[in-house]
Design a protein around this nucleic acid. Sequence first.
RNA 1: GAGCCGGUAGCUCAGUCGGUAGAGCACGAGACUUUUAAUCUUGGGGUCGAGGGUUCGAGUCCCUCCCGGCUCACCA
Length: 528
Amino acid sequence: MTADPDAFRSVRAWPFEEAAKVADRLAKSGKEEAQGDVLFETGYGPSGLPHIGTFGEVARTTWVRRAFERMTGRPTRLLAFSDDMDGLRKVPDNVPNKAMLAGHLGKPLTAIPDPFGTHDSFGAHNNARLRAFLDAFGFAYEFASSTDYYRAGRFDAALLRMAALHDRVRDVILPTLGPERRATYSPFLPIHPETGVVMQVPMEEVRPEDDLLVWTDPETGRRHGTRITGGHCKAQWKADWALRWFALGVDYEMSGKDLIDSVKLSSAICRVLGGEPPATFTYELFLDEKGQKISKSKGNGLTIEEWLRYAPPESLAQFMFGAPGRAKRLHFDVIPRAVDEYLANLEKLKAQPDPANPAFHIHDGGSNDPGSPIPFAMLLNLASVVNAEEPGMLWGFIRRYAPDLTPESHPLLARLAEGAVAYYRDFVLPTKHHRAPTPVERAALEDLLHTLRALDAASDAEAIQNAVYEIGKRHPFPGLRDWFACLYQVLLGQQEGPRFGGFVALYGIPGTIGLVESALARTGEAAA
RNA sequence: GAGCCGGUAGCUCAGUCGGUAGAGCACGAGACUUUUAAUCUUGGGGUCGAGGGUUCGAGUCCCUCCCGGCUCACCA
């Protein structure tokens, strides 16, 4: 597609609307020609490991970034910024060596040994996890470590400027704090020269001309002088965000609605420093199936591993694309719908590259993926009907439906078949109830057992079906329907089922014999 | 207290530029048949949360209110 700014401006898709915001901001601020790359940022807290929200934020930011490139033709960068210099507040639950970590509370994550023992520091470990996560999805980004940036002096000029404007920055922040914090608050957090702890103490003197902060350790009563620059102090969170925006010239950053106040405050600080805050975007948080908020400690909601167990990442991207400004329920039940929406959009994309199509963004403009001619919902249904234990059973039916489909020709379909089997195994199978046979049914099943053992292993579905049908007629069932209902309820544990001969042919005669044997061995209440 | 999002069929939701209210599921009826359905056809079901405004015309735009959910007011 040729870059035609006005055409893309009118596209009814939120990434283009966001891209227009970025373009307008650049035009207004006069940065249009001044600097080169337009900078998009996503930020990461120190303690959190990458999760499903991380995927959403990076995917969404990437879509805005690409839309902006199409709209303006300008080069961009995506900075994945890790706030790894932040002090460790509490020992996380999900790590080894908790006692060791407890001895390092308050220190920057990059100054704490790695509890996993695989990296130079806890911060480095978390950073590696983040990068591996982003790489696994093929995101294009540039990683940034806060510690590295501070130490390399990339914030020095901005820090000195913030020191020179110390009172004005405080004036912006203080009204938002409670009276207790207000008394001691400083946007500067010096690193203790002896303990290495990130200190939250009042500044007695802020002397940018001497590159010096003066403060007192409340524990020892000793006064310290700490350099402002060179990584000897860091900025408190909201000031830190503003400092970063100002120093790096961040043009776009999105965040959850829990950070609305922080965005406002950091924007105000950024302006005090003399910068223009980035174009920002607030997305809604996700809820679980009951409408409760997703909380890692509660364990509700859905992890990204769980989603990918049942469906490919494109379907998760489809989910993340839809209505970011709306609170959406994120649980297992939304997966089939997201998959089928994605499949439909993929087909539309292949027919015509429409920038309003979510798949256009997910595939950065186009795709020649053969997709899946079979909807995921149908595969799930099929998996349940045939009691699918592995994808090959689904493929037996798929080939009958469309002989030219193979896992090789349609890898996405193959992935969906695997997901459907997993979904069936995890959600449908546990609810199945194999009832015990009645005396009449027991006799018929024994008859079936002998018949199956006598059958030629190469018998086709029709021959098996006829044999099963004859057994039903030999025994005193009120109707043949009851014989087949017995087969489904006793053997498969479900109310309905596939044509039985076809099922046996696919499932195998030995396997079916096993089902009958275990059903006959089962004791317990017979159905009335 | 401040802010964000929502309220449309029994359920989950879609509804584009303001132009005669839609889908899926569920439910009802029918067709097909060696029991079945990855089959087909079809039906019923709506105060679009309430009120006002703009308009020839409002689910849609504006204002007020009600209800529900969430977030922030300590830290990041």
